[in-house]
Design a protein around this nucleic acid. Structure first.
Length: 407
DNA sequence: CTTCCACGGGAACACTGGGGTG
DNA sequence: CACCCCAGTGTTCCCGTGGAAG
């Protein structure tokens, strides 16, 4: 008797992919095209660790998908391996500051890595800090802390960076240096002067890839990821071109290639064709919007929904913040909720703007004051269904009709 | 030059969920 | 157990400010 999954597994071994994992963003290739300069630079600086010195702190800049994280992880793997061979112990700790985004959480995580027991909340921060310090100092070694997306840490006004950068003077055995990774070139301006000079001892820039370089990257991965000659010739250049428009984001390009392959596979095609890439591009964008909208906090959803209601009700596209706020209040009344203040709602609007769901510009209307003009920047059809999935917003599906009648 | 309105920065506050201590 | 301490988050309150119409 056939197992339910039998056919599916056979499918999977399928015609298109040889190894899909290679295309995922978590995969670290052993060869990073067009990043030799950065790798060498990084290795140069870090080699100090192997000579028993303390490497300079490093700041790494580059837009998303320019290979920053992959490069750093690759170099750190090599360094740790070499350290073991030479008997001078090195350890790299990778922290994604988007996950550990406050000073407490960073120190608590670090302390845990060095075998100290620290609860994730509850203690005073300085206690966590000394636990971590004791943990690091327990051995004679060089610890390199990698802070990915370090701008997320700074924006919360934390002095985690300050504490980290001066910790060396308090350590007796261990040495510690920092690698900060940021995709915002201007973020050091927010830093305290002392931190800025200490963290920016060395700087490495990762420029965006151009279309040709993206093609190299894709070709190399495609060789492992796909079976032979399943890709039509135009597929890779097209993926590269799409991603090059998005400021040379290699992650985007790889996503696009993977999804194209999946679509081709599912449609039972022998080859990945140009049309699959175009479909994939649309799908990825739609998924992005859906994902963003779904994870919005409730109040933001109501605000967004208010803008949608306005767009439907009137025949125009842009609305003043006053109009949006009124509609928002009405929605809240319908839902039996206390509306937030106008001040708070302007913040929510700004967040929606940053997420790219709406477009907001400040306009001065002279004698009649200043306002923000707000417009939806994604199709209603791709947003509203997702919004109404939220059971708390279900009621708003009806408000629309009533509101129209009472107006 | 005045005037008007919301923008947006910053402080203060409330609340949460977890500590340690007696 | 009751109690207070602490970091973190979302919110409100207060207020100085930008900038074109009048």
């Amino acid at each position: 008797m056939d197992n339910l999954f039998e056919d599916l597994i056979k499918e999977k071994g399928g015609r298109i992919f040889a190894n899909k994992e290679v295309l995922r963003p978590t995969y670290i290739p052993e060869n990073l095209p067009h990043r030799n300069e950065q790798i060498k630079n990084l290795a140069d600086i870090l080699s100090a660790a192997l000579r028993g010195e303390t490497p300079s702190n490093i700041m790494i800049y580059g837009k998303t998908g320019t290979g920053k994280t992959a490069t750093v992880k690759y170099v750190s793997k090599e360094l740790e391996a070499m350290g073991q061979k030479m008997g001078s112990k090195c350890s790299m700790v990778y922290i994604n500051s988007e996950v550990f985004d406050t000073q407490y959480r960073v120190f608590a995580y670090l302390a845990r890595i060095f075998n100290k027991h620290v609860p994730m909340i509850g203690w005073p921060t300085d206690m966590v800090y000394s636990e971590f310090k004791a943990g690091v100092d327990a051995e004679n070694w060089c610890v390199i802390v990698i802070l990915d997306e370090v701008d997320k840490l700074v924006s919360k006004g934390d002095n985690a960076l300050y504490n980290l950068s001066r910790i060396n003077s308090e350590l007796k055995n261990a040495r510690l240096s920092l690698i900060g990774i940021s995709n915002d070139l201007t973020f050091t301006e927010l830093l305290d002067q002392r931190v800025r000079s200490s963290l920016g001892e060395e700087e490495i820039i990762f420029p965006p890839y151009n279309a040709a370089q993206l093609q190299d990257i894709l070709s190399e991965r495609a060789e492992k990821a796909f079976n032979e000659s399943v890709l039509e010739d135009s597929v890779i250049p097209l993926c590269a071109a799409f991603a090059a428009q998005e400021h040379g984001d290699a992650r985007r390009a790889l996503d696009l290639l993977r999804v194209s392959g999946e679509i081709a596979e599912r449609s039972g095609s022998e080859k990945v064709k140009e049309e699959h890439v175009r479909l994939a591009s649309e799908r990825i964008e739609a998924n992005r919007i859906e994902e963003v909208v779904k994870t919005l906090p409730l109040q933001s959803k109501i605000v967004l929904n208010s803008i949608i209601l306005l767009s439907k009700e009137r025949n125009k596209k842009r609305f003043s913040s006053g109009e949006v706020y009124n509609m928002y209040r009405r929605s809240c009344n319908f839902l039996g909720m206390e509306p937030l203040t106008q001040r708070r709602v302007t913040d929510l609007v700004s967040e929606l703007d940053i997420l790219g769901l709406i477009n907001a510009v400040i306009v001065s209307k002279g004698r009649y004051g200043r306002t923000k003009e707000i417009a939806l920047s994604v199709p209603i059809s791709s947003v509203q269904p997702v919004l109404l999935e939220d059971y708390k917003l279900k009621a708003l599906a009806n408000i629309k009709v009533k509101a129209q009648m009472t107006l």
